[in-house]
């Protein structure tokens, strides 16, 4: 692993762990733009931390929540946000 790859791995780890500064994020984006293969390093770390974060015992969700979510979305679909979303998804 060369110096640049080691630097990218560190930045990817900080990014996935949620500890990267804005400067770190900008540097990581620049390295990814220069070498797209580094995306795999970021992806591996993100999948690892996501696996950890989804390892808690699942909890029963309240019965009415899905209905409330769908109601809120239906209201948004009819409003300005919904029209913008449709416009963006077409373009």
């Amino acid at each position: 692993m060369n110096e640049e790859q080691e630097r990218a791995e560190l930045l990817a780890a900080l990014h996935a762990a949620g500890a990267a500064s804005e400067e770190d994020e900008r540097e990581l984006e620049a390295l990814l733009a220069a070498d797209p293969s580094l995306v795999e390093v970021v992806k591996d770390f993100q999948d690892s931390i996501a696996a950890l974060a989804s390892s808690f015992d699942p909890l029963e969700t309240p019965a009415k929540t899905l209905g409330k979510i769908q109601q809120q979305i239906a209201e948004e679909k009819g409003g300005l946000l919904g029209r913008l979303r449709r416009w963006f998804s077409k373009s």
Binding site: V42, K43, A50, T65, I69, I73, R85, S89
Partner: peptide
């Protein structure tokens, strides 16, 4: 929980599979 799922629905058009799995996106 409600806000998270409304946001996931809103952000669904921006989901990019090359940047991570669906579960990683949900957790993020």
């Amino acid at each position: 929980l409600q806000e998270v799922f409304v946001e996931l629905w809103r952000r669904a058009p921006q989901f990019d599979r090359t940047r991570g799995s669906v579960v990683a996106w949900v957790i993020t």
